[in-house]
């Protein structure tokens, strides 16, 4: 009996997830889903992303400003800010299957003469780990783009 109950709950939950997923995918009446040819689908920026520990030839204040902009670009809201440290969290989005967001990114800076050592780390935590990803490399790349352009 107990086995039957557990089985029915598992089957029920799976069916429910499937229904919710189909509902969401079928939802946008009147909102066209981008056709494959039109979509400028960029490769997943976080693919192969790893935590960063680099020394770059820019002053710390400039690096901090560029890092803040890069965090903004990836939807990371800065919660703690010091002259040598930034901490931000990405908004969590509920999905039908895995969802997205909720990662915590920290940026630690230390001055090395005219250069700056930068450490970017992404914390995924435990809840909803499957939908989370490492953002350290794309944040570093965006920051470098800003610094080179300035």
């Amino acid at each position: 009996m107990k086995c039957l109950f557990v089985g029915s709950v598992v089957v029920g939950a799976s069916a429910c997830l499937l229904i919710a997923g189909v509902t969401v995918l079928a939802q946008p009446a009147g909102q066209a889903v981008q056709p494959a040819t039109q979509a400028e689908e960029k490769e997943d920026a976080s693919k192969g992303s790893k935590d960063v520990d680099r020394t770059i030839a820019y002053p710390m204040a400039q690096v901090l400003a560029a890092a803040k902009q890069a965090l903004d670009t990836y939807g990371c809201d800065v919660k703690k800010e010091k002259a040598d440290y930034l901490e931000c969290t990405r908004d969590r989005h509920v999905g039908a299957f895995v969802g997205s967001g909720g990662e915590k990114v920290t940026v630690q800076l230390s001055s090395k003469g005219s250069e700056t050592r930068i450490e970017i780390k992404t914390g995924k935590g435990f809840v909803g780990r499957l939908g989370k990803k490492n953002w350290s490399t794309p944040i570093f790349d965006d920051m470098m783009k800003t610094l080179k352009g300035s």
Partner: peptide
């Protein structure tokens, strides 16, 4: 413009 698409979600900045 920065665009990221992965699994269920799309990010646009």
């Amino acid at each position: 413009v920065t665009e990221v698409r992965r699994l269920e979600f799309a990010m646009f900045n």
